[in-house]
Simulated assay, not measured.
Amino acid sequence: MTYQELLTQTALDNEQVIVMTAENRALVRNLPGILGKRFIDTGITEQTMIGAAAGLALRNRIPVVHALAAFLTMRAFEFVRTDLGIADLPVKLSGFIPGLLSDANGPTHQAIEDIAIMRGIPNLTVFAPADEDDLVKMLPQIWESQSPAYTRINTRKTAYVHTPFEMGKAEVIAEGTDVTILTYGLLFEQALVAVDMLKAEGLSVGLINMRSLKPVDEEAILKAAASSKMLVTLEDHFQTGGLYTIVAEVLLKNQRTAKVMPIALDEKWFRPALLPAVLEHEGLTGKQIAERILGQRTNQQQPEILISEFSE
C-alpha cells in the first residue's frame, strides 16, 4: 500500500479527516477528485494552512497537512508551536522530502534541523519512518492519536518488511555486543548494508530503527548502551538536536555512561546532487559508514558521551 492509498482509505472511512496542502500535491495527486470539499489547497501559505488546520481541529476534524518539510517546520514554526503544540490539537503534519530526500535542492529546501525544531514543541510528537512499508505501518496509529504529530514522510520502496508499529517503541532489528547502530529514516537502508559489512569483519552488530523520536524508546537505548561496547547514532540531520542529542539526554537522565559515535551532518548543509552522489559525498553510503565505524574502533581518541554514574 502507498501513502496516498492509505490516506485515501482513511479519509473515506472517517469523514472527520480533512486533507490539506500548501500547493504541494506530490503525495496526494488523486485526492481532490475523491474528497471534494474535504481537500483544501491553501496555496504557498504554510502559516495560513496551519492556522486553518487548527480551526478545523477545534471543530472535531482531523487535518492531515502537507508541505515541503523545510517550510512546514521553519516557515510555519510559530503557528505549529502556538496553534497546535500549546493548544494540543490533533493536526497531523506530513513533511515531504526531509533530510537527504531533498537531494537535488539547496540549503533553503533542506530540512536537516527539523527533528530538533519539532521535538522542542510542547505536546507535538515526532516520527521518522525508514521507508514506505514502515510509513504505512506507522501512520494509522499516528493519525488516530489525539496528539499533534510531525512525520518525516519517506515513500522510498525497499525490500525490508518491518514489524508492526507501537507508539513510542523502536524496532530492534538485531542485537550486538561490539557495536549497535541507532538510526531512522532514509539511512536505515544504508545501515543494513553497513551491518552486513561489519559482520563480515567479525563484529557482533546490533541495529535499531528508532522510528519514534518523540516519544522515544528510552529502554531500547539503555539496553543497547549496556550490551554494546559502542553506540553509533546515524542520521541525515544536523548532529545538534537530533538522535545524538536524544541519546545523550537519555543517558544523562538515567545516569549512565556510554561510548557514542555520531554520524550526522556537522553544522553544514549537504551539497545538492542526485541521492547516490549526495550519500557518497557526505560519507553516508553503507560502505562508508562501515569503514568509519571500523576506523573509529581502532582510534584511541574515540568521542564519548561521558556521564558519571552518581552514587547514592
Rank of each mutant, 00 (worst) to 15 (best):
P32A: 14
T163C: 01
V126D: 10
T125S: 13
Q141I: 06
Q141G: 07
I112S: 03
S94L: 05
T151P: 00
K157I: 12
F96I: 15
G55K: 01
T82H: 08
G99P: 03
G33K: 07
M118Q: 07
Q146E: 12
T73A: 14
M49D: 09
R81N: 05
F79S: 07
E171I: 05
I115H: 04
R61N: 13
V80W: 08
D88E: 11
D178Q: 04
D41K: 13
D131Y: 15
F71L: 04
R38K: 06
H66Q: 15
G51T: 09
A104C: 12
P98L: 07
L68W: 06
I121R: 00
T177M: 13
V91N: 03
F165N: 00
D83R: 05
I112D: 04
Y150H: 06
R156W: 04
G99W: 03
G55F: 04
N60G: 03
T82M: 02
R59Y: 00
G106K: 12
I97H: 06
T73F: 08
D131N: 14
T45G: 02
R59T: 10
G36M: 07
T82Q: 08
M74I: 08
A104I: 15
S147R: 05
S102L: 01
F77W: 14
A57Q: 12
I112H: 10
T42L: 14
A87N: 04
E144S: 08
A174G: 08
G43P: 10
E113W: 10
T151E: 00
D103Y: 06
R119W: 13
K157V: 13
P129I: 11
D134F: 09
E132S: 04
M118P: 00
V65C: 06
A130S: 14
F165D: 05
E144H: 13
V136A: 02
S94V: 15
G168L: 07
S102K: 00
P122W: 14
F77L: 15
A104G: 12
A57D: 02
A111Q: 06
L139M: 15
L56S: 00
